[in-house]
Amino acid sequence: MQDKEFDRLLKITRLRVSAEERVQIKSDFEQVIAYFDEISSLEADGEPAYHPVEIPGRLREDKVKPFADSESLKKRAKTSNGYIVGPKL
C-alpha cells in the first residue's frame, strides 16, 4: 500500500499512529488484504445476505416513553450557561 493511500485512510478515520505502529500496521495490512484475496478463488453467485436470518423489519410504536435516568446523562456533559460545550468547528 502506498503512503498516500494509507494517509488518506488515517485522515478519514480520524486516526493517528506512531512511527512504530505505522510500520507494523502497513505490513499487517498487506498480509491481511492478501489473505482476503482468497475469496477470489470462490465462485460467488446470488444475492448478498445482509443478515444471517430473515429480519421482518418490525417497528415499535412511535410513542414517547420517559427515560429512567436522565439525570445521569446531564451529569456527564460539560455545560456552560445551560448549554452543552463541544469542540470548535
Binding site: 478519514i12 478515520t13 480520524r14 486516526l15 495490512f29 460539560k78 460545550v85 470548535k88
Partner: peptide, 28 residues
C-alpha cells in the same frame, strides 16, 4: 475544547489499541 474539530477527535481516538486501529483502517 479549544482544539479544532478534527484535531480534537483525532487526539481522542489515539486511545484505541493497535488491533482496533488496524480493524478500523482495514474495514474502511
Amino acid at each position: 475544547f479549544y482544539k479544532q474539530y478534527n484535531e480534537f477527535f483525532t487526539d481522542a481516538r489515539e486511545s484505541f489499541g493497535i488491533e482496533a486501529k488496524r480493524r478500523i483502517l482495514l474495514g474502511t
